[in-house]
Computed example of a mutant assay.
Amino acid sequence: MRKLLNIAVTGFYLLGATGVTFAQTVVVTPEQETVVREYVKKKPIASINLPGVELNVGSALPDTVELHTIDAPDVQYRYVVIDNRTVLVDPGTRKVVRVLQ
């Protein structure tokens, strides 16, 4: 009985860890990406340089970087233009969720 309980606990642990991984996955729909691209074209901002910061999904931006609001429904992210690339950022974590070319 104890062995069965250990197996069950291990299984629930693995399921929980998998659930956490899925919860951290950010999905930017094609519709959202289109809205963002159109918004950025209409309201361009100056590109900034961030030496030493890699623009990868999951990278956190420093607090000194001003994040700009996207005034569109269903878009919860903010944006900034770094090295002439539009970067979508989760405002709560300041992590990059998408780099648009």
Score class of each variant (00 low, 15 high):
I7P: 04
V9A: 10
L67M: 09
V36F: 03
M1W: 12
L100A: 13
V28T: 09
R78Y: 08
E31T: 01
E54S: 08
P51H: 14
R37V: 06
Q24D: 15
G11T: 11
T21S: 05
D74N: 07
T93F: 08
I82A: 08
V57T: 13
V99M: 02
A23R: 03
A8W: 00
T69V: 10
R98V: 02
P44E: 02
H68A: 05
G52N: 02
I7V: 04
V35S: 14
R2D: 14
V40H: 03
L67D: 08
L55N: 06
V89N: 10
G58Q: 02
P51Q: 14
R85Y: 02
T25G: 02
L14H: 02
T18Q: 15
E54D: 09
A46G: 12
S59V: 13
V40I: 07
G11R: 10
V36R: 09
Y79D: 01
F12E: 07
Q101K: 14
Y79S: 01
V89Y: 07
E31C: 00
P73L: 03
V80G: 06
M1K: 07
L4R: 14
I70W: 00
I45C: 02
Q101G: 07
F12M: 15
V89R: 14
V28E: 04
V20R: 12
D71I: 06
V27C: 08
D63Q: 15
N84M: 07
T25R: 15
V36N: 01
Y79G: 00
K3H: 10
R37E: 06
R78K: 12
L100D: 04
E31L: 02
V99W: 11
P30D: 09
N56I: 02
D63K: 15
E38H: 04
G92H: 13
N84D: 15
T10L: 14
E31I: 01
L88E: 07
F22C: 14
V96S: 08
L55S: 00
K43W: 12
L61G: 12
Y77N: 11
K43D: 11
Q24F: 04
R98A: 06
V20G: 14
G58A: 12
L88Q: 07
P62A: 08
V36K: 02
A72Y: 05
L55I: 10
Q24M: 10
A23Q: 09
G19N: 14
R78W: 01
H68Y: 10
I82S: 02
N6V: 01
R98N: 07
L14P: 04
T21L: 14
K95F: 11
G58K: 12
T29P: 01
R37P: 08
Y77P: 05
D90I: 04
D63S: 15
G92N: 12
H68Q: 07
A23H: 02
R2V: 07
T86I: 08
Q24W: 15
D63P: 15
L55R: 11
T10K: 10
V35P: 11
V57E: 01
L55E: 01
R85A: 06
A46D: 13
K41P: 08
V35F: 08
D71N: 13
